[in-house]
């Protein structure tokens, strides 16, 4: 295969539950230094796609490369922000503790975090604007604050490629803006960010790359070429009333 600067390369990825396909033969090439949205209707396999890329679900076939090397060898370059609702926020632990978990990968088995790791943790909390909440129990956080905790946890991973599962879901407007700013800062540092996204209206504003997904890949590329009415119609199956002159009409018919 030719040399390239792709941060992420997915080749012929197929995922099935009980041999019911959830993703069919996905090919993706994501250049480094972009913020990419993965959009598609509910049940399109967006979350499954990033979980399969991260090796959390075993694919039926396919290959994932991070900077031209197999994913398993490049795991340390990858950061992950799962869906906020995937964990129990009543768990007896603090904000600092959760963020520290991002460093467990670098620490390896059994070794404990040190003062040095605490410093990294606080730096990340500072970046997401909740350093004052470091000792707070996580059940006392608002939705936006929970999301910031998860982002801080990903930041301490100091990854090159980030995967984020619906980071804008259920957060307040201030947090949404803060996250966008953070993503842009990360891009400036040359990082690649891949985001499962629900809100079609903000795609053109927040992202410079987009993948349209509905069990198979409909299209993938720069937003201005890819995020077209035709592609959207194909993705959402005619459920999108898409009018060029009225961008606020770009809403899928079935949203959560």
């Amino acid at each position: 295969m030719a040399e390239n600067d792709y941060a992420l390369e997915v080749n012929d990825l197929t995922v099935a539950y009980e041999h019911e396909p959830v993703l069919w033969d996905i090919d993706l090439d994501v250049p480094s230094g972009v913020i990419m949205a993965i959009v598609g209707p509910n049940g399109a396999g967006k979350t499954t796609l990033i979980k399969a890329i991260l090796g959390l679900i075993e694919p039926a076939a396919g290959q994932v490369l991070i900077f031209d090397q197999p994913y398993n060898e490049q795991r340390h370059l990858v950061g992950y922000v799962p869906q906020r609702r995937s964990v129990d926020w009543d768990f007896p632990t603090t904000v600092e503790d959760v963020v520290m978990m991002g460093l467990y990968g670098q620490l390896g088995w059994i070794k404990r975090p040190t003062r040095h790791h605490r410093a990294i943790t606080h730096e990340a909390l500072e970046k997401v604007g909740i350093v004052n909440l470091a000792d707070r129990q996580i059940s006392q956080l608002s939705g936006g604050q929970q999301q910031r905790v998860f982002l801080a946890r990903a930041l301490v991973q100091d990854a090159q490629v980030y995967f984020m599962d619906e980071p804008f879901q259920g957060v307040d407007a201030t947090t949404e803006r803060a996250i966008v700013t953070l993503l842009q800062e990360l891009r400036q540092q040359g990082k690649t960010i891949i985001v499962v996204h629900h809100d079609l209206q903000t795609v053109t504003e927040y992202f410079d790359w987009v993948t349209l997904l509905n069990v198979r890949k409909i299209a993938s590329g720069p937003v201005e070429w890819t995020f077209t009415a035709e592609n959207l119609r194909e993705t959402y199956g005619g459920r999108v009333s898409f009018l060029k002159s009225q961008p606020e009409m770009m809403q899928p018919g079935q949203e959560q």
Binding site: K51, L54, G55, L56, R75, V78, Y80, P82, S86, V87, D88, F91, T93, D97, V98, M101, Y104, G105, L107, W109, I110, K111, R112, P113, R153
Partner: peptide, 20 residues
């Protein structure tokens, strides 16, 4: 295995993404 068990109990998938 304090740290690992905490990870397992709180966020299994994140732990798996770290390679544990």
């Amino acid at each position: 295995f304090w740290k690992e068990f905490k990870l397992l109990s709180f966020d299994r998938e994140f732990g798996a993404s770290l390679g544990f």
